[in-house]
Amino acid sequence: MTISTKISNDGKELTIKVEGRFDFNAHREFRAAYEQAKSNSTKFVVDMAETDYMDSSALGMLLLLREKVGGDNANISIVKCKPEIRQIFDISNFKHMFHIE
C-alpha cells in the first residue's frame, strides 16, 4: 500500500492517491495525507485507479476525512474506481456521502 498526495498550485485542491490495499494498515498514512491540506483547500479527490482492495476500515477512513473537511459541506470526489471497488461503494451506498465517479 502506498499513499501519495498532490496539491494544486493554488492550494485549493488536494488529491490523495491510494495504491494497493486500502485497509486498516493505511490508517496513519491516509490521515497524514489529508493533514497536508492547506487552509484554503476546499476540494478533495481520492484517486483509486490503483486501489486493488478496500475494506470497511477504509470506508471508515473516508468518513473521517469527510468529517475533518467540513462534514455535510465537504467536497470530496472519489474517482477512477475499479469495478470491485465500485461495488463496495454501491453496497454501502456511500454515493449519498461522496461524489463517486
Binding site: 470497511s56 476500515s57 471508515g60 477512513m61 468518513l63 473521517l64 469527510r66 468529517e67
Partner: peptide, 8 residues
Amino acid sequence: LPPEMFMA
C-alpha cells in the same frame, strides 16, 4: 461512535 465506525 466515532465517525469512522459504523455498522452494516
